[in-house]
Design a binder for these strands. Structure first.
Length: 568
DNA sequence: CGGAAGGTTGCTCCC
DNA sequence: GGGGAGCAACCTTCC
């Protein structure tokens, strides 16, 4: 038993969320106490709450990546004589039980800033307070706290351009990563027994999982996870090449940073969306920063070391490697401080326009044709090989290049299908290993020219843009084998190939590969007109609300009042 | 306040 | 094929 501790005992429960690592983890380190000030914890209980089955928007490969991170975290904890307890259930339900029966005095977390996470954490803090347990949050998820950025904007609103954000970021202190612990406080000798004795058997079994020991769910070699009812085997060639975990994250970071020229000369718009693992132009570290298997503060420190070695000669924001971390902060700041950030309606920074398939406004039953188009896009069946190949890569690997995301997002929204960006965000949330709520929703607003970016007349061609990167069609041939033998002059537009050429290539359009679902050259003009009309309507509305005083400048639509002045 | 400058990553046409 | 103007025209930031 944990000794019948008095209230003076310091027992810490480390609640891991998006910080699945030992390096640069201030919350975890807090258990060690501080010399002469705070004693080391007597016991440390590392916990992850596995929220089954509520993560409906988390696809199979995302689950696998998360579980790999948990397995690696558990292994690394065990090297220090500890372990991870994976508790099945929602945090506000299960943490109070653990706190009570493990006699926990402090619950330590890495701070999260999403509105829903803040609400959840407040809930947990209230639930554990009656048990005499403090909720203590620590930095580490971001380089900068959204509040600290907001405090320097002058108007209390998140910056909407990278130039404005960078100006603030450059004046904020550079966070220093902390070392991984060399040792950890012990577990209670019989932490599991304590729970088994205190809880009724059904509750215990539900929390502890099928092994009865709070272990990480097992991933079978065929990719199935029986405990999570992920029972569809994934053939070897369709498994993601990106393996989760802190160990792999730090290996990839070191490998990337070892090429100093690549780091100092990095310019995002010059990296190719048609390059793919293991020869991608970019780091593919985003899945690791998403789950916190890699600390962004450690990442930044590594970039800074390379920059210093180059005596300050390096690319600059908004295109530099460091700026890629700034973009993450940029969207997290906006997401943490903008009302209704994840949707179009009642979102003060978002363009209002009449997309198809708006959540809550149409259904599959009311508009089956619109949703058929959405499905064709999501499944890689648009008939545009560049678009479809990207969606296949996304589905299979859980990662595609940022500019590839631009292409398919523009296609779904303002470019071709004029479908709600929220629907695209839902699909990405399901598929992306690196899904971050604020980045995903923010980038969908960007690409649909709903917020941040407004030059809707700049449209990506689903043919020309890919062609400019990969005229041979290597990328398409990899992910759409049906087009493998199509001559390069038709690989981006197979419908233009003479039927004899289609037959010779073994790919007849309409039989072996879909006909294109829209004619880009036609719909792009229609869509641009829709955007123009929506902007005009919005300016008119703003002029009305402002008594026509500013001619609609800064279109206030729902921006007036204090809608953005919400507490963090 | 008003207006100019600038905005990570477009396309087409022309030289 | 690489670079630059024109396309038609959005918003935020900054002075």
């Amino acid at each position: 038993m944990p000794p019948a501790t008095t209230n003076l005992a310091r027992n810490v429960l480390m609640w891991f969320r998006r910080d699945l690592r030992l390096h640069d983890n201030p919350a975890l380190l807090s258990a060690l106490g501080q010399p002469d000030r705070i004693p080391a914890a007597q016991h440390l209980y590392p916990v992850y709450c596995l929220e089954i089955p509520t993560k409906k928007k988390c696809g199979h490969r995302r689950w696998i990546f998360l579980l790999e991170c948990l397995h690696d975290l558990d292994a690394n904890l065990r090297k220090l004589g500890s372990r991870l307890f994976v508790v099945r259930g929602l945090a506000p339900d299960v943490l109070p039980l653990l706190v009570q029966h493990w006699n926990v005095s402090e619950l330590a977390v890495g701070e999260c800033h999403e509105p829903f996470a803040v609400a959840r954490d407040n809930d947990v803090a209230q639930q554990i307070a009656p048990h005499g347990c403090d909720f203590k949050s620590f930095p580490g998820r971001t380089l900068f706290r959204p509040q600290d950025v907001l405090a320097r904007t002058g108007n209390g609103k998140a910056p909407l351009t990278m130039a404005a954000f960078s100006k603030i970021a450059e004046r904020l202190p550079v966070p220093t990563p902390v070392d991984a612990p060399a040792s950890l406080p012990s577990l209670g000798d019989d932490a599991i027994t304590a729970l088994r004795n205190a809880l009724d058997p059904a509750t215990f079994d539900a929390l502890a999982g099928p092994q009865g020991d709070f272990s990480v769910p097992t991933i079978e070699p065929d990719g199935t996870v029986p405990e999570l009812h992920l029972t569809t085997p994934i053939p070897a060639h369709e498994q993601s090449p990106h393996r989760g975990g802190e160990t792999e994250a730090l290996r990839r970071l070191d490998a990337y940073l070892s090429d100093h020229a690549r780091v100092t000369q990095f310019e995002k718009p010059k990296t190719s969306p048609a390059a793919f693992y293991p020869n991608a132009d970019t780091t593919i570290l985003s899945p690791y920063t998403t789950y916190g298997a890699l600390s962004v503060r450690t990442f930044r420190a590594g970039i800074d070391r390379v920059y210093r070695a180059a005596k300050g000669k390096h690319s600059k924001p908004p295109v530099s490697l460091l700026a890629q971390l700034y973009w993450r902060e940029f969207f997290m700041t906006a997401g943490a401080t903008t009302l209704n950030f994840e949707q179009m309606r009642r979102n003060p920074i978002c363009l209002q326009t009449e997309w198809k398939c708006i959540p809550g406004e149409t259904t599959r039953e009311s508009h089956p044709d619109d949703y058929a188009m959405l499905d064709a896009w999501a499944e890689g069946q648009t008939g545009y090989p560049w678009i479809d190949a990207i969606m296949v890569q996304l589905r299979r690997e859980g990662w595609v290049h940022h500019l590839a995301r631009h292409s398919v997002a523009c296609f779904l929204t303002r470019g071709d299908l004029y479908i709600s960006w929220e629907r695209g965000a839902e699909v990405f949330e399901d598929l992306l290993l690196d899904h971050e709520w604020a980045l995903n929703r923010g980038n969908w607003m960007w690409l649909s020219a709903s917020a941040f970016f407004h030059q809707y007349f700049r449209v990506y061609s689903p043919v020309k843009w890919g062609q400019s990167w990969d005229s041979e069609g290597v990328f398409i041939r990899k992910y759409l084998p049906v087009l493998r033998k199509m001559p390069k002059q038709y690989i981006y537009e197979p419908w233009k190939a003479p039927i004899a050429v289609q037959r010779a290539a073994g790919c007849v359009v309409g039989v072996d590969y879909p006909k294109r679902i829209v004619d880009h050259d036609v719909v792009v003009k229609v869509n641009m007109t829709k955007m123009k009309t929506s902007h005009a309507a919005q300016r008119e509305q703003a002029a009305m609300e402002n008594g026509d005083s500013n001619g609609g400048r800064n279109g206030t639509r729902e921006r007036s009042g204090n809608m953005r002045d919400r507490p963090l």
